[in-house]
């Protein structure tokens, strides 16, 4: 399993439907709106780095998503 945390900045007021849509993606464990420098935090848990990459691409291309930053787990 590879985990990652995707931090999202959304268009104004769009965080609710971004969270709704992101939650439907298979590898997404959790997604919730946050306070701070980002609007939404997404916890992704994929079976391998390929699925992780696909999931992150899907999230970052969503309508309402303006900017994403992904922090990927270091596999040891």
């Amino acid at each position: 399993m590879v985990d990652a945390c995707v931090l999202i900045r959304t268009e104004r007021g769009k965080y609710r439907d971004v969270v709704g849509k992101v939650k439907r993606i298979k590898a997404v464990q959790d997604a919730y709106p946050v306070l701070g420098r980002y609007d939404v935090v997404v916890h992704v848990s994929a079976k391998d780095s390929k699925e992780l990459g696909r999931t992150v691409m899907k999230v970052s291309r969503m309508v309402g998503v303006v900017f994403t930053e992904t922090l990927v787990e270091v596999e040891r």
């Binding site: 985990d3 990652a4 945390c5 959790d30 916890h43 930053e69 992904t70 922090l71 990927v72 787990e73 270091v74 040891r76």
Partner: peptide, 15 residues
């Protein structure tokens, strides 16, 4: 709930 070493701007991510 979950914590891991990360590449990128943060060294450790804690959920």
């Amino acid at each position: 709930k979950k914590a891991f070493l990360a590449y990128g701007r943060a060294d450790v991510v804690i959920l």
